[in-house]
């Protein structure tokens, strides 16, 4: 039976280790957006020994490139993008303290191993529910790579953002295996 937790950022080892696949988390606090191009720059910064635009310790990265904010709203539609494209970057970020990523779709074996090694989780948000998820985002501001437009890193303030534990820190996975001899 799945449990629903209310968690606040930053996440601790204790927060992460109690989560099992299928649990629902209503997340409140600060999260950071980053997708393809931003990840490339983050890792290039690490290679050069530069300080990252946000502290990875206990942090969550949301794989999203939102639509422009219409007048009177902090952000436009903001649902998850497909996560596997960030698989080559995620283990290194987890090793530096990143506690969770939020996206949709399968992760590589390397990412799953990193979740176990560094006590971290992978959350799914509902793909294609961008208008609905946007309602939980109360503030947004670009903090880095503004030239990347929708791919810039944004700091989001979220309240009760609904997440589903897809991969937990013990190696579990929620996604169903297709009934097919593959």
């Amino acid at each position: 039976m799945s449990t629903t937790y209310k968690l606040t950022t930053p996440l601790t080892d204790e927060d992460v280790c109690k989560l099992v696949i299928g649990d629902v988390v209503l997340l409140t606090g600060t999260i950071y957006t980053a997708r393809d191009a931003a990840h490339k720059r983050l890792v290039e910064s690490l290679d050069k020994g530069e300080t990252l635009p946000f502290d990875l310790k206990g942090a969550l990265i949301y794989y999203v490139g939102p639509t422009p904010a219409p007048p009177g709203r902090p952000i436009g539609a903001a649902g998850p993008t497909t996560s596997y494209r960030m698989d080559s970057y995620a283990p290194r970020l987890h090793s530096l303290g990143l506690k969770a990523t939020i996206g949709k779709g399968k992760r590589s074996d390397e990412v799953k191993a990193a979740l176990t090694a560094h006590k971290a989780v992978y959350f799914g948000a509902t793909g294609g529910a961008g208008a609905l998820l946007s309602q939980c985002i109360k503030a947004a501001r670009v903090i880095a790579y503004e030239d990347l437009g929708p791919e810039a890193i944004r700091e989001l303030t979220v309240v009760d953002f609904p997440l589903l534990v897809i991969n937990d820190a013990t190696g579990g996975e929620l996604y169903v295996k297709p009934k097919l001899d593959m």
Binding site: P70, T126, G127, A131, L132
Partner: peptide, 24 residues
């Protein structure tokens, strides 16, 4: 639950004119 969320998302997008999905 997923269908419920997708239908709620569709209602909300129609009402608020926010896109259904951020990938337009």
């Amino acid at each position: 639950e997923i269908f419920r969320q997708l239908l709620e998302n569709a209602d909300l997008a129609k009402e608020t004119r926010l896109p259904l999905c951020q990938d337009t």
